[in-house]
Design a protein around this nucleic acid. Structure first.
Lengths: 130, 130
DNA sequence: CTAATCTCTCCACTAACTGGAAGGTCAAGA
DNA sequence: TCTTGACCTTCCAGTTAGTGGAGAGATTAG
C-alpha cells in the first residue's frame, strides 16, 4: 500500500510516517519505480505499534527500544517490563508535581477577588512578595 | 550587578538570562562600556518573577503577559485571575490524561510476569493484539 | 489529453532552552 | 609588567517530535 493508505490504517499523519522513515524508526517495505514508499502488513503493524506506544507517552528512543523487543521473539518479558516500569515511575513523578502545582495555584486563584482592583495575590506571590 | 550575580540572585542559569534578554522578555537595565549586561533591582525582580511563573508551568508567552500585568499598576486582578484559571484547567486536563495512562500501563505491568519468557502482555497490547 | 490528486525531497519553523567555539575584558599574583 | 584565569560577549548548532510549505514529478479519472 502507498503512504496515504498506511496513514489511514495506522492513524498516523502522512508527514509523521515520512518522518519515521527518515529517522529509520519504521522503514517502508520498499519503494515503487517512481520512488513512492510502499508499506506491507508488517511495516503497517510497526506503525500501529509506534502510534500506540507514543500514546502511552513513550519517547521515540523508548519506542525504538520497544520495537526492537517487539520484533525479537527471543526477548524476555523482563526487558519490556523494565522499560514500562520506568515509564510508570515517570508518570508517578509527574503526577506528584502536577498535584503540587494545582494545590498552590488553586489556592492563589481562590484568594484572588478577580475584580477591577489591581490588588492581586497571584501576582504578589509570583513576585515573591510575602 | 553583572549577569553571574543576577544568575545567583534569581536562581536562573546565565544562559537563560541571556536568552530572556535576546527574546526581549527581561532586558538588562543597561550595558557596561565593554558591553557587559547590567542588572538592577527592578530587572532582577522581573527575572525572579519569571522563574517562579515558569515553575508554575506558565509558558513564555503567558509569562510575557503576566509580566505586563505585573508591571502595570492599573491592571485588574480579573485579568490575572483569567490567565491563572486557564492554567489551572490545563493542569486538570493533564492530570486526567496522566491518570488514564497510569491505570492502563500499571495494569499491563502487573500482568507481565517479567521473567525470561518472551510472552509479554505489554508488547501484545502495544501491538494491538487482543 | 488534461486536471486533480498524490507523492517526492528539501528547507524552515515550533518551545525553551543548552552547549560550545572564538574572541574580548578584567582583576590578582609573580 | 606580564600573564593567568575567570568572566563576559556573540554566533552557531543541537535538542524533541514533528508540522507546514515550495517546487517538481507521478498517477489516475474523466
Amino acid at each position: 500500500m502507498k503512504i496515504s493508505e498506511a496513514s489511514e490504517q495506522s492513524g498516523l499523519p502522512v508527514k509523521t510516517i515520512r518522518y519515521y522513515s527518515d529517522i529509520s524508526l519504521v522503514a517502508p517495505s520498499g519503494r515503487s519505480n517512481a520512488g513512492y514508499r510502499r508499506y506491507d502488513e508488517k511495516s503497517l503493524q510497526k506503525l500501529i505499534f509506534i502510534r500506540r506506544a507514543r500514546e502511552f507517552g513513550f519517547s521515540i528512543a523508548e519506542c525504538r527500544e520497544l520495537l526492537g523487543l517487539y520484533s525479537n521473539n527471543a526477548r524476555s518479558s523482563a526487558d519490556v517490563k523494565k522499560i514500562a516500569s520506568n515509564r510508570l515511575e515517570d508518570i508517578c513523578k509527574k503526577q506528584g508535581e502536577l498535584q503540587c502545582l494545582y494545590d498552590e495555584l488553586s489556592h492563589l486563584v481562590q484568594n484572588c477577588r478577580g475584580d477591577d482592583r489591581p490588588d492581586c495575590p497571584i501576582i504578589s506571590n509570583l513576585a515573591d512578595i510575602k
